Amino acid sequence: MDLIYEGFAKAVALLAALDREVLDITWLSLKVSGTATLLSLVFGITSGTALALANFPGKRLVVSAVNTGMGLPPVVVGLFVTIFLWRNGPFGSLDILYTPTAMIIAQAVIATPIVCGITVASIQNLPPNLRLQILALGATRPQMVWLLIREARLPLLAGVMAGFGGVISEVGASIMVGGNIKGYTRVLTTATVMETSKGNFDVAIALSLILLLLCFAINYLLTRIQQRERPR
């Protein structure tokens, strides 16, 4: 229990002192995971909506693949992104391995199936005749798609929270493609792993608490938006 108390005290001390290294690590965590989540929204909502509205042979197989992707192990994603970005890999010439950009790519790959899967379920859960009603009122197909997304905005916000939560808390892919380089690619999760391996449990607990506070703050903001939009 002493270690936990020391961790709380250390976290308070680091936050109160506005420790520069901790602030940089926290900001990089937010920047990398936030950017990855935004990318996953673009690709996930677009592909999820298209998949939900389309009818083609093998659709159930594709949806099953997307749902399977929602549980992609981060280390597997990290492995394949590393291979693709390795100096002898297909995109090795970009020279972005062990950079924040590589971390964003890996995290976007992790989050996109989560957002896509929730989008498919959200759109398919709308009343079946809603599309026909919207088109009958004279809306174009793009307008119809936009109105469907608006109708499904509450569960889609849950998808945003799930996608962000899935990447801000992952560690395997971030270490593999980022390298945990001090002052450059070190984020809260990788720093926590490093401090734990060094036996600095008070610092590790402090970093974990800061990560939890960050996750809570982001999710609280998104939850307020979601609940405000909820029909009364």
Rank of each mutant, 00 (worst) to 15 (best):
Leu85Ala: 07
Trp86Asn: 15
Gly89His: 06
Gly89Ile: 04
Phe91His: 08
Phe91Cys: 02
Phe91Leu: 15
Phe91Tyr: 10
Phe91Trp: 03
Ser93Asn: 11
Ser93Pro: 08
Leu94Asn: 12
Leu94Thr: 05
Asp95Trp: 00
Asp95Arg: 13
Ile96Pro: 01
Ile96Asn: 10
Leu97His: 05
Leu97Ile: 08
Leu97Asp: 09
Leu97Gly: 12
Leu97Thr: 11
Leu97Cys: 06
Tyr98Trp: 07
Tyr98Met: 13
Thr99Asp: 10
Thr99Ala: 06
Thr99Asn: 09
Thr101Lys: 12
Met103Arg: 03
Met103Tyr: 06
Met103Ala: 06
Met103Leu: 07
Ile104Phe: 05
Ile105Cys: 02
Ala106His: 09
Ala106Lys: 13
Ala106Ser: 07
Gln107Met: 09
Ile110Phe: 10
Ala111Tyr: 14
Thr112Trp: 13
Pro113Trp: 04
Ile114Trp: 00
Val115Thr: 07
Cys116Asn: 12
Gly117Gln: 04
Gly117Thr: 10
Ile118Gln: 11
Ile118Val: 10
Thr119Pro: 09
Thr119Val: 01
Val120Arg: 01
Val120Pro: 06
Ala121Ile: 02
Ser122His: 09
Ser122Tyr: 11
Ile123Ala: 03
Gln124Cys: 06
Asn125Pro: 13
Asn125Ser: 15
Asn125Cys: 10
Leu126Ile: 07
Leu126Pro: 01
Pro127Thr: 07
Pro127Trp: 02
Pro128Ser: 10
Asn129Gln: 12
Leu132Asn: 15
Gln133Asp: 13
Gln133Leu: 08
Gln133Tyr: 05
Gln133Gly: 15
Ile134Phe: 03
Ile134Thr: 12
Ile134His: 02
Leu135Trp: 11
Leu135Gly: 13
Ala136Thr: 07
Ala136Arg: 05
Ala136Ile: 05
Ala136Gln: 10
Thr140Tyr: 09
Arg141His: 14
Arg141Ile: 09
Pro142Lys: 09
Met144Arg: 07
Val145Leu: 03
Trp146Asp: 00
Trp146Lys: 15
Trp146Leu: 14
Trp146Ser: 08
Leu147Gln: 14
Leu147Cys: 10
Ile149Thr: 06
Arg150Trp: 04
Arg150Gln: 05
Arg150Phe: 04
Ala152Lys: 00
